[in-house]
């Protein structure tokens, strides 16, 4: 269970990026965060694994507070939280399987990690996961040779090998064509249920959020506007979120 309580953040004085954000998410749930550009979606997501240091509040993952962790503890927390990026953020020159295995670094001693010495089990698991995301034949190919959709699936495999409790996705499909986008969203949805993970995705497409998410959180100017089951999302709420009617998007 992930609980966020009264999270606050401002990058500059007197300009709050997040104001009193609270929500909680059960395992196995797919959550979409929507809201206008600059609302604070990325800031929330990056606070959840402390890539951004927020100012105050609580972030409890199974009742342990990430915010008060020291450096070594934070490393242990982070390895339970996968992250997927709009630009995939892979090491393009390395092979697909090497990139997947990077997800294990948080579990390894510094030296083993530096030299990239992975166990047989880790390598086998990487292959199983690549099979799962449909990239088994690409294991030894360089990532630079893959399409965007394939790269994003490598990113998903890299986060899965972390054995995560949470996967954070910052606009995972913003650089993808509609078909690849669908594949990636479907995959995330299925994996969330199969592994009983919490999956949180920042999305700009409301129809996709409605289609795949169980729960939708709306953020506007750093404040939480709504947090409700995807099925309940109404035109009126959306109009409030974006300051204008968004009828077409809902269909």
């Amino acid at each position: 269970m992930l609980e966020v309580k009264n999270l606050e953040k401002s990058y500059q004085k007197d300009k709050t990026a997040l104001k009193d954000i609270s929500f909680s998410i059960e395992p196995g749930k797919f959550v979409a965060i929507i809201g206008p550009s600059g609302a604070g979606k990325t800031t929330i997501l990056r606070s959840l694994n402390q890539l951004i240091k927020d100012d105050s509040g609580q972030i409890l993952l199974d009742n342990q507070d990430l915010r008060t962790a020291n450096k070594a503890e934070l490393r242990k927390h982070r390895r339970q939280i996968g992250m997927i990026f709009q630009n995939y953020n892979l090491v393009e020159r390395l092979t697909v399987i090497e990139n997947v295995l990077h997800g294990r670094l948080g579990y390894k001693s510094t030296l083993a990690g530096v030299f990239g010495r992975y166990t047989e089990d880790e390598k086998k698991e990487a292959m199983v996961l690549l099979d799962k995301v449909g990239l088994k034949e690409f294991a030894l190919q360089r990532c630079s040779e893959l399409s965007g959709g394939q790269k994003q699936r490598v990113g998903i495999a890299r986060s899965l090998i972390q054995h995560p409790k949470v996967i954070l996705c910052d606009e995972p499909i913003a650089s993808l064509d509609p078909i690849s986008a669908q594949t990636v969203m479907q995959l995330l949805k299925e994996l969330t249920e199969e592994f009983n993970i919490i999956c949180i995705a920042n999305l700009h497409q409301i129809n996709i959020a409605k289609k795949y998410a169980d729960q939708i959180i709306g953020i506007r100017k750093g404040e939480l506007v709504f947090d409700e089951p995807a099925a309940d999302l109404s035109e009126a709420t959306l109009a409030e979120l974006y300051d204008q009617p968004v009828t077409k998007e809902l269909k």
Partner: peptide
Amino acid sequence: ALKATGASYFQIIFQ
């Protein structure tokens, strides 16, 4: 990306 996986500083540099 590697920072987010919990990798340490030297692991990130070399990997």
